[in-house]
């Protein structure tokens, strides 16, 4: 048993906390800053799942490799959003304000 129960539980609590951060970040207005927050929080979650849930703590090379893949995918999608931003349209603002209530 490579991961003790307390480490596992700490990982779980951290994962749920990060999910809340993500949820808050998502409801905040879309901007480059929040996009980066979302990517970092999501990437950190994948790393925790890989290391603790999947037990890759015991295999550091595999942890690095798999994490690189998940991080790269998130980063590339975020990068493309920064390069091709959503044009600000009246329609969109209207839609957004309704979801704030």
């Amino acid at each position: 048993m490579s991961v003790t129960t307390s480490r596992l539980t700490r990982a779980f609590i951290l994962l749920i906390t990060l999910s809340l951060v993500l949820a808050v970040a998502a409801d905040a207005h879309a901007s480059a800053f929040w996009l980066v927050v979302v990517v970092l929080a999501a990437a950190l979650k994948t790393r925790i799942v890989l290391a603790r849930y999947l037990g890759l703590d015991a295999a550091p090379a595999a942890l690095t490799g798999f994490f690189a893949v998940t991080f790269l995918v998130l980063a590339l999608v975020a990068g493309s959003i920064l390069v091709f931003p959503t044009p600000q349209q009246p329609l969109r603002a209207e839609n957004h304000s309704s979801s704030q209530h």
Partner: peptide, 22 residues
């Protein structure tokens, strides 16, 4: 359980891309 965690892991990438990143 490794398979199950993989399903979990993939959701952690799919979810932000479709729902949150804009």
């Amino acid at each position: 359980t490794a398979f199950w965690h993989m399903v979990d892991l993939i959701w952690l990438v799919v979810f932000p891309v479709f729902y949150l990143m804009r």
